[in-house]
Nucleic acid binder design. Sequence first.
DNA 1: CGATGCGGGAGCC
DNA 2: GGCTCCCGCATCG
Length: 402
Amino acid sequence: MLRDWDINDNIVPAISEAELNEYQDWPDGHCRFVYHPNNEEAKKHSSGWAMRNTNNHNVNILKKSCLGVLVCSAECTLPNGSKINLRPAICDKARRKQQGKNCPNRNCSGRLDIQACRGHCGYPVTHFWRHTKFGVFFQAKGVHDHSKPEPKNCRETRRYLGMGKRKSVSLMLNRDAALSKKLKTLQNSNKFEFNYNGLSQNGQSNMNSSYNTTYQTSLNCQDMTQQYSPDFSSNEFINAEEIFQLDQPIKQYTMAQDFSKSPSTVLDLDRNYLVKNESIIPYYPEADDTMSLTSGSSVSFFEDGYQYFDSNNYMAANPYNSTEYNNNIFTGKQFDNYETKFFMNPSLEYTSNVKSDYLSTNDPQINYFSEYRIQNNLTGNNYINNYAEENVSFVPQYECAF
DNA sequence: CGATGCGGGAGCC
DNA sequence: GGCTCCCGCATCG
Ligand SMILES: [Zn+2]
Ligand SMILES: [Zn+2]
């Protein structure tokens, strides 16, 4: 039996080990718990609900308020009968970027919209956290009046890799003739530079500051195959040029403008390959773009019915979609699991889980691996701050055979 | 890049 | 004073 206490008491009671509660992912309603002082979730003050820090001017008690859930403005229903309920970003800027995006349901033309939480007398539900040597005290006030957002997941790897924004280089070949020319140069020389002077823009943002920015981007490609695949022994080696080939098989893929499906993993059934594109190109702001300079649009191949599912990237990025694909609602295929380790960067290792419908007990084998170094320099003044910006991305691209 | 925590400050009752 | 919300800053992964 829990002793009586309130988070605002001058002294909260001592709690014995036996009185500690199991960590609760989705506390709802007015409730209190005391978690073990070593519980990782409790120490991080995390919750299934999207809670953001709010200033209560009390250093001893951390207060958080609910951000609600991202829903579709058209209130569409997915093929599996569920509704769109994405997780609002905690960061204000990132959340503003989410709003108005296309609904991730490819059959829907709606936009993403924040459904605010008014579960506590018209205000968002609040969580309070307080640490003592006996435990982590938690108290919630209010009943959420909205559905649960997607749970947070391990985006750390993707963020670290700078994969939050990307376009597939292969896809770019389809839609941007100018860039594809540049990339064709790449396959011959393995190194080149190009300027985006043609994309420099003058404009007036609605932040009432003029900007004039030029972009200069360099792109270097280094074949890392030997380095990353010491057991390289495939008899079906596909070289880099084939990935950039314009006429086939890339042409069969269509583009989905969908930020939530950014990593692209494509099965080419004809060639029996899994082609995984993790390429990023820098983002060039439009004249009417009032968002961050470094925000980016993303595209995906997930439109052709031959999708593969990569849990390390795709599911982690969007559990809702991964469930959709995992249940084979669109593909009707039975997936097997493979687990393969890739070195994405000399300083970083992560495991990529691949599901395929091939009945193979072998791990996918790396046929080709290259790493792109994309350097983007902005000079002049942009419309947010007057500063020059330089950023560098390392982008892996690899291909597997089963 | 975004998640998270901190704290000053404005506005409201 | 108490509370909410907004904003910028710093840290971390
Ligand atoms: Zn929709
Ligand atoms: Zn809520």
